[in-house]
């Protein structure tokens, strides 16, 4: 499987990553090689096999939705790069 520059650019947009022309070229080459390795799976018949999404088959536990750890605003805002008056600040979205 070979991935072209157009596909790389599309995937980069989906992944919210920038890719310079050199990076696009490198990704195209590397991802193509990795996907070739992955295509060895096609030789293995898997019809009727149940996909395995988790290592351990346990039911997902449920709990009551109870408020805990209240008043963490300052601690959480302290992790952010830009805050203002108790809020996260981001570039203007609406003109």
């Amino acid at each position: 499987m070979s991935i072209d520059a157009q596909t790389v650019k599309h995937v980069a947009t989906l992944a919210r990553l920038q890719a310079s022309p050199t990076e696009v070229e490198a990704y195209a080459e590397q991802l193509s090689r990795i996907l070739t390795l992955m295509e060895t799976l096609n030789s293995l018949p898997t019809e009727g096999v149940m996909p395995m999404s988790h290592a351990v088959d346990i039911p997902i536990p449920e709990r009551d939705d109870v408020v805990c750890h209240t008043d963490q605003r300052e601690a959480l805002l302290a992790c952010a790069a830009d805050t203002d008056q108790g809020h996260f600040r981001v570039p203007k979205i609406i003109e």
Binding site: V11, L41, N42, T46, P51, M52
Partner: peptide
């Protein structure tokens, strides 16, 4: 992102989950 993207999900991700089994 590629293996999960529209059109490739079954060919790669779903296939891999079956082989994982």
């Amino acid at each position: 992102t590629y293996v999960l993207s529209s059109g490739y999900y079954d060919a790669y991700y779903r296939k891999a989950q079956k082989v994982r089994r």
